[in-house]
């Protein structure tokens, strides 16, 4: 077989294993899927919004939560279970392992993000450019999956540690990223913080695509999202290369 085929197959192996093992676990699905949904529902009902206004934030937080639900725990879990070294000794590199993990997470995130999109379509709520929306969702799930993997770079074998830290970052992000409240209605100080959140730009673009009015120009939303994605990818690979050695020593 050609080299690149072997490479793809080994990355696919990681992805296949992740889906079989991690994405079949009940609590993870609940935390990653039901939690954002009910959070959204609470806001939706609480503020008496119409579905049309709510679809964009629902898609954004679904993409955000589902993509970053599982990736933070994979490596700590594999360290704890002593399966990691079994992978590292095979013809694969840490970078390729991370790519496989991110790919699995994207598949998971994308399939759940399509649900609210479909729901909208059934109700006749159509984005003004479906292609752009799908492209953005691919980019956004890549960004958020990588962010999840980035959290797991801390060299621990206790998955709960990483879950705690990632939740401590993820939850506040929802409130400062203009998801439930569009940016132009946020207080000045929150809007400044929002500038730093990767979720802001994804949400803004989706809202725009559903006719809710962009705060930033489209092109800026896409560029910043791409930039964040690039930074996350580089940082993740770099940090994991360092910490994987320390993982081997954890007993």
């Amino acid at each position: 077989m050609d080299n690149w085929r072997r490479t793809l197959r080994s990355i696919w192996a990681i992805c296949w294993k992740d889906v079989k093992i991690y994405y079949a676990k009940g609590p993870i699905v609940v935390m990653g899927v039901l939690f954002p949904f009910f959070l959204w529902l609470a806001f939706q009902i609480g503020r008496g919004l119409e579905v049309k206004e709510g679809i964009a934030p629902l898609i954004a937080i679904t993409a955000f939560f589902t993509s970053s639900a599982v990736t933070p725990i994979i490596l700590p879990w594999e360290t704890r279970q002593r399966t990691l070294e079994m992978l590292l000794a095979r013809p694969i590199t840490i970078t390729r392992i991370l790519i496989g993990d991110i790919l699995a997470s994207m598949l998971f995130g994308l399939s759940f993000s399509f649900l609210p999109v479909l729901y909208g379509l059934l109700l006749g709520i159509v984005p003004n450019n479906l292609g752009t929306l799908l492209g953005l969702l691919v980019l956004a799930t890549l960004e958020f999956s990588t962010l999840g993997v980035l959290f797991s770079a801390m060299p621990t074998d206790v998955p709960a540690d990483v879950v705690m830290i990632s939740s401590a970052v993820k939850l506040p992000l929802i409130f400062v990223s203009g998801t439930f409240m569009p940016l132009n209605r946020l207080p000045e100080i929150m809007r400044c913080i929002a500038l730093f959140s990767p979720l802001t730009y994804v949400t803004d673009l989706i809202r725009g695509l559903y006719g809710g009015g962009n705060y930033f120009p489209c092109i800026l939303d896409i560029s910043v999202t791409a930039l964040y994605t690039g930074v996350f990818v580089l940082l993740t690979v770099k940090l994991h290369k360092i910490t994987v050695i320390r993982r081997l020593q954890l007993k």
């Binding site: 197959r9 696919w12 192996a13 093992i21 013809p91």
Partner: peptide
Amino acid sequence: PEEANPYPDLTVRDNLTLVGMLYG
């Protein structure tokens, strides 16, 4: 490897398949 484990949640067959795929 020393004190390594197969994936506890995968079957014997799936563990072997996984490694086979890793070798392409």
